[in-house]
């Protein structure tokens, strides 16, 4: 279980997170929605310790994340970055198998390569892609390689920052299904950021909406449509009018 309590983070005068409280139960899929620039990516990075919160506590299974052994802690996580963040000096398969080629999970290169190719297949990429370099791929392909890398070592907890952005509708469907599968079959805990409402419905057990630096609404996905929350209603129906100012 991941638990955030009163987490705040500012960049200079820009107060991005202003007291986030959120709980993600183990083995469930949480989807974070919210306007562009509201701090969704920053929130994920705070949990991973890539960004240090100004205040508040984040615990994993009841233990403060800042006091845990970093290596053991990170070994439990996989993360797909919004921009892919592939290592452009390494071919695709070495990106995917990065964790399997070094450190505590190290295994023979041939085995790591086979796993990488299997993970690439699961995100809809052919084995030929394995030997290309990231710069030779399209944006959507890079995103899927990033996804394959995030799930390669089969971590317990996986963060997906906009997994389907830039993908065609069919491929987006495949990826949604994959994320759902990872949660239901492998029992992983997933936290996904997405702007795509059909992805939300396909992936989520629970939904949380981040607005103005706080979680405005959180609850099970089937209560999303009749939440009675004007912010959430405006957001999921994509209306220009409502409490959220569209033009600032």
């Amino acid at each position: 279980m991941i638990d955030l309590s009163s987490v705040t983070k500012s960049f200079g005068t820009n107060a991005v997170l202003r007291g986030v409280d959120l709980t993600i139960d183990s083995g469930t899929s949480m989807v974070i929605i919210g306007g562009s620039g509201t701090g969704k990516s920053v929130l994920l990075k705070c949990i991973l310790g890539l960004v240090t919160p100004d205040a508040g506590t984040i615990t994993l299974d009841g233990q403060d994340v800042t006091t845990q052994d970093r290596d053991a802690f990170l070994a439990r996580f996989g993360m797909l970055f919004q921009g892919g963040a592939l290592f452009d000096s390494l071919p695709v398969w070495q990106n995917v198998a990065f964790r399997l080629l070094r450190g505590s999970l190290k295994r023979p290169a041939a085995e790591a390569r086979a796993i990488a190719i299997e993970k690439l297949r699961r995100v809809g990429l052919k084995p030929e892609v394995a030997d290309l370099f990231p710069a030779e791929l399209s944006g959507g392909m890079q995103k899927r390689v990033g996804l394959a890398r995030a799930i390669a070592a089969e971590p317990e907890i996986i963060f997906f920052d906009e997994p389907t952005t830039g993908l065609d509708p069919i491929m987006a469907g495949v990826i949604n299904e994959l994320i759902r599968e990872i949660v239901t079959e492998m029992g992983a805990t997933a936290m996904t950021i997405t702007h795509d409402m059909s992805s939300v419905r396909a992936i989520a057990d629970n939904v949380a909406m981040l607005h103005d630096g706080v979680i405005k609404w959180t609850g099970p996905v089937d209560r999303m449509d009749n939440s009675g929350d004007p912010y959430l209603d405006q957001f999921i129906h994509g209306r220009a009018e409502g409490p959220i100012e569209a033009v600032r």
Partner: peptide, 16 residues
């Protein structure tokens, strides 16, 4: 460039 494109962050999350 690695820092700007989040590759350094990615390294950290891959326990490196």
């Amino acid at each position: 460039t690695m820092k700007v494109t989040e590759q350094i962050d990615a390294l950290v999350t891959l326990s490196t």
